[in-house]
Design a protein around this nucleic acid. Structure first.
Lengths: 210, 210
DNA sequence: TAGATTGTTAATCGATTAACAATC
DNA sequence: TAGATTGTTAATCGATTAACAATC
């Protein structure tokens, strides 16, 4: 159950950062152990689900006691590859790009936006925090030189596919897309979409007076 | 199957905006009908799923032909309440808030960010596009005066719960949260979370060299 | 008519939850 | 020891997909 061949379902993976967040909070409060029941109370999740999720990565709870906070913290970070440094390429130096870049600087410990790209000559050379906006044409060179491993697409929908393809050919296989388009990707690329338009429109369904 | 008592699953609701986006594209290309097969090809979805999703809102396909683009466009907008104007309150005039506000101005037809709020005196009075940042203390008054129906939380995690509570007591029942926290809400509130940190961390799981 | 495609039932798949023996 | 809680199996629930009669 612990080997890498058994692939873990995306639903579980998406809960791991949630668990990590809680564990960090508890750690800050100097709490030493936590039960699945307590975690479930905090996160509005079923304790059985939490136990099952964690158990898919090995046995590290203690019966009658719960989970050791320090170990759980370490384990979750290790699973999420947050025990090492991860460089991110951000494409698009518009408002969203700038917001993301500033946000990431403070929120994301080991994940760092290491380079920002744009195609607009007006934006190339612009300063965002400590970063200088680079030419999108230099994507591959810079990604390889800086060993970047993730990409964030923060460009308009019309150029998102092109940017996506460029990221993939620059060797990046893990992409977070903010543009409202269905991107076409190859089989080894991991893509997550997060799109304000879609979210708001879906929420609008629940408005009254239907 | 068409009445409002049968509640539609969230999975289906979240696909409706995706369908709408495609239908709009096809409409712009002056295409008149589309089959579930064609939609599935475009969206990487199973045609049976698309038919089933749409059928849960009534029968409006034509056997042997497919779906009428104009009608589908109209129907999806109606379902998503996009046939009327929706006013949104945005809380937080930081980089993310500004990015969202600017983004929404262009992308979201009927959904309009109608007011931006902040607690920071430095930001109150600031101009964002055509909007002036209002005092967060005036939330209830302004929401009611302008009949706002949705809220977007774009404040730091530490104040997100407070903002959420304020939105709910201002009568808003539909909230999109960008802060990395598990918000506590009552039973009649619809909340969606979208959080860059969580998304990036989940993606990091898939990086190589595990 | 022949071909295409819907709407819907049944089958499958996957995810969540309940239950409980094992054990700290 | 008695009480608590895990890890895991079995049961349930829900969502996706296959199949096909109905029919345009």
């Amino acid at each position: 159950m612990r080997n890498k061949i058994t692939s873990i379902s995306p639903s579980i993976i998406r809960r791991l950062p949630i668990y990590l967040r809680l564990v960090q909070e508890l750690k800050e409060q100097s709490i030493l152990t936590v039960s699945s029941q307590e975690m479930g109370d905090h996160l509005d999740l079923n304790p059985a689900q939490i136990r099952k999720d964690l158990a898919s990565f090995g046995e590290f709870g203690r019966k009658g006691v719960g989970y050791d906070i320090s170990y759980l913290d370490w384990k979750l970070r290790q699973l999420l590859n947050l025990d090492r440094h991860i460089g991110v390429a951000l494409i698009g130096a518009g408002h969203l790009g700038i917001a993301l870049s500033n946000y990431a600087r403070f929120q994301l410990e080991r994940i760092t936006i290491a380079a920002v790209f744009d195609r607009d000559p007006q934006k190339i050379g612009m300063q965002i925090g400590t970063l200088t906006v680079a030419d999108f044409n230099d994507l591959t060179v810079i990604c390889q030189k800086q060993d970047l491993q993730m990409g964030i697409i923060a460009v308009p929908a019309s150029s998102a596919q092109e940017v996506c393809d460029a990221l993939v050919s620059a060797g990046i296989r893990t992409i977070l897309n903010f543009a409202p388009v269905n991107l076409r990707i190859g089989p080894n690329v991991h893509l997550r979409n997060t799109d304000v338009t879609t979210e708001l429109q879906a929420l609008a369904y629940y408005l009254d007076q239907k």
